[in-house]
Amino acid sequence: MRRAKISIVGAGNVGATCAHWCAAEQLGDIVLLDIPGDMADMPRGKALDLRQSSPIFGFDSNIIGTNDYADTAGSDVVVITAGIPRKPGMSRDDLLATNAKIMGLVCEQVAKSSPDAVVIVVSNPLDAMVQRALQVTGFPPNRVIGQAGVLDTARYRTFLAMELGVSVEDISALLMGGHGDTMVPLASCTSVGGIPISQLLSQDKLDAIIDRARKGGAEIVGLLKTGSAFYAPAGATAQMVEAVIRDKKRLIPCAAYCDKEYGVGGYYVGVPVILGTGGVEKIVELELTDSETAAFKKSVDAVKELVTAMAGLV
């Protein structure tokens, strides 16, 4: 029985750390790809370094670094982290235009080399980039997914655990909506050991935690000064890869294509899904409170604006 094949396009901090988590969990053979240029050997160096840790941690995955999409052929899962971060002086349109172009070039190659793969998009601005990936690959929407909800939920759960002094394992939570300031943590779906969060935290404290979770990435950028978060984004992505490779049927929030679900017509937005070997196998529709519905609509509107702006730039 062959091992699964996981290709990661973009060998920066997020991509390389995702490879690390996937190897440690023995999810399959891994191809780490980045573009040729001055740093052409970088993915090979990282792959070799990671491979040399295999005797220490006991995994047998074949790990290679490359600049050639031919090495990714026949992948079961393709993770796309490629793109540039927003820099001082850049507008949102600048970031959209550049990363949409990169996403288009990557997805053209992915569609040729791995036509049956499940694609997990990590690049930002996430909700627009996963929409772009769908357009260019031509894959069924269930096989093109955006990673954001798992990360945002992890940040939310982390801050709740820190505030309450409890294990993160006991905190169950769910978020919806776009990735960023308009994401919608669902207090009605948040509990600690089965106890509703409303019985453990005041609304003011919960609101403060929600606000911190929304700005979790920016907080880390401010602390690092020269980079952005990568441990948690990579870990969240690896959890999604595992759900697909091992057909886990995880109920987790992902950026999924909503055709009619939640009244969203033809956009990617963060919603709870069942994630398995077929990608998004089901979108789970919840009954939201009035305030949650209003916040979700606001988040969807922000996603629509982003996608509309991208359409005018590509």
Rank of each mutant, 00 (worst) to 15 (best):
A243N: 02
A148T: 11
E285I: 04
T308F: 15
L306W: 09
I195T: 14
A111H: 01
S191G: 15
D34G: 02
M1E: 08
A73I: 00
M1P: 09
G312A: 13
L32R: 00
I8K: 01
M162A: 15
E219R: 11
K46I: 06
A23Y: 04
F296C: 05
P185K: 05
V31K: 00
A238P: 10
D301W: 12
A294F: 14
G83P: 06
P55S: 06
A154C: 11
S202E: 12
K46E: 08
I84S: 14
I30N: 02
T137K: 06
A23P: 07
C107P: 08
I84N: 14
K304W: 08
I252E: 02
H20V: 13
G235L: 06
A47T: 01
I145Q: 02
I8T: 03
P253S: 05
A133P: 09
G222P: 02
F57Y: 11
F296D: 06
A311D: 15
G146R: 04
C18N: 03
I274S: 10
C107A: 05
T81W: 03
T81D: 07
S75E: 05
V144R: 03
R92F: 14
A232I: 14
G10M: 01
G74S: 00
S114G: 03
L288A: 13
A154G: 09
K282A: 06
A243H: 03
T277P: 01
A255M: 11
R250P: 08
K87P: 11
A256G: 03
D71N: 06
V119R: 03
K205Q: 14
T137E: 03
A19P: 01
V122G: 08
L95R: 08
L306G: 10
M39C: 09
I80K: 04
C258E: 01
A82K: 00
L306Q: 13
K298M: 15
G227V: 05
G28N: 01
D116K: 04
N99D: 11
E285Y: 08
K112C: 12
L313M: 07
Y267A: 09
F59S: 07
Y156M: 08
A255V: 08
I274R: 08
V78A: 01
K215T: 14
V136K: 00
L288F: 12
G279V: 02
P196S: 15
L174G: 11
P36S: 03
A256D: 02
G65K: 00
R157D: 11
K5G: 02
C107F: 06
I120C: 01
M103L: 07
I195L: 12
A208Q: 12
V271Q: 03
Q26T: 07
L288K: 12
V271K: 02
R246Y: 12
I6C: 03
K101D: 13
D68P: 05
G83Y: 09
V118E: 00
K297D: 15
V136F: 00
L95C: 12
L200E: 10
S54A: 09
M183Q: 13
